[in-house]
């Protein structure tokens, strides 16, 4: 099977607050640095990516953040408009139909439509060619910073739901092509971002099962984010506990330093236990991303995380 760098359609999801966006940008950067022309697609979120590259917030238009790395962050309305215009070709018809008050109100409440058009846009870019009648693919990879678990899963289910609900029309065909792309284990993959903590790990295990079973999609990596680098080895951690124990409850200068050390050692231990769990279940390859102590996300942190991806994937290549 092709490794991550040879995939073309990559979806990153996971529990809320685990750092999906950071991981997605860093992953896209890793692709770009290997000379891959990559499009990072965000799903209508307040953009924080533009600023990291000294650019204005990313919106509906594709912008180049740095060499080979492009980003877009459309709203479902943008995506729907783009799609409808592409099909209808005539703006006049588009306006008469889609801008009609009743229709736009109706479309607003159509369940799944926002998800469908957003996924559709990502699909379009995966297929996009340089020439009108073919040519080279415009993008080597499309990386999607997908919504958190529940909504993310719904996003991936939507083409199949549409396929079941409709019997004819263009949307059925599009939906079928999307289902085929998601299930194409050579081209597409899904990565689950998690923290090494109880609830995110539980969600990771559950999500993995559902993605494989309900979507039929390949799960590539579990990305364990924010792992504290180990400072104290086993005996040192035990000595620390012992010292704090004899020092007692006093949190003066020494007490505070010892307590902070014990906190670090215990947190790291806890992370270790959860990493161990992740190795067995879901049992897919794992990338550990170190905790970033910097005050805010900057280019340097992203480069470091990108290095971790590259190394982890190279390592996996060697062991195979």
């Amino acid at each position: 099977m092709a490794d991550l760098f040879n995939k073309r359609f990559i979806i990153n999801t996971g529990k809320g607050g685990v750092g999906k966006t950071t991981i997605s940008v860093a992953m896209a950067l890793a692709f770009a640095r290997r000379g891959k022309r990559v499009l990072l697609m965000q799903m209508n979120v307040p953009d924080k990516v533009g600023a990291v590259f000294g650019k204005p917030p990313v919106g509906a238009d594709i912008v180049e953040l740095t060499d080979n790395l492009f980003a877009v962050n459309p709203t479902p309305q943008d995506a729907l408009r783009e799609y409808a215009l592409m099909i209808l070709k005539l703006k006049l018809i588009y306006n008469a139909v889609f801008e009609n008050q009743l229709v736009s109100r109706f479309l607003k409440m159509m369940p799944g439509l926002p998800e469908l058009v957003m996924l559709g846009k990502a699909y379009f870019h995966e297929q996009e060619k340089t020439g009108k009648r073919g040519g080279r693919p415009v993008w080597d990879a499309v990386i999607i910073d997908a919504p958190a678990t529940g909504h993310g899963l719904f996003l991936l289910q939507i083409p199949r739901v549409i396929d079941d609900a409709l019997t004819s029309g263009m949307m059925v065909e599009e939906a079928q092509r999307m289902v085929a792309l998601l299930r194409d284990r050579e081209r597409s993959t899904l990565n689950i971002v998690t923290l090494a903590e109880d609830m995110p790990v539980n969600e990771t295990i559950e999500l993995h099962g559902r993605v494989e079973k309900e979507i039929g999609m390949h799960v590539g990596y579990v990305v364990a984010n924010a792992i504290f680098p180990r400072l104290f080895n086993g005996p040192e951690a035990r000595h620390l506990e012992q010292l704090l124990d004899s020092w007692g409850d006093d949190r003066d200068e020494l007490g505070a330093v010892l307590a902070a050390g014990v906190f670090r050692a215990r947190r790291r231990d806890l992370q270790e236990q959860h990493l161990e769990r992740l190795k067995y279940d879901p049992g897919v390859p794992m990338v550990e991303v170190p905790f970033i102590f910097e005050a805010e996300l900057n280019r340097k942190c992203l480069e470091r995380i990108a290095d971790h991806f590259t190394e982890a994937i190279e390592r996996q290549r060697m062991t195979r």
């Binding site: 019997t167 004819s168 029309g169 949307m171 059925v172």
Partner: peptide, 13 residues
């Protein structure tokens, strides 16, 4: 409107 939307969704929808 119905014909245009119908192209996307199929008329029976």
């Amino acid at each position: 409107i119905m014909r245009t939307l119908g192209r996307f969704t199929g008329a029976e929808f």
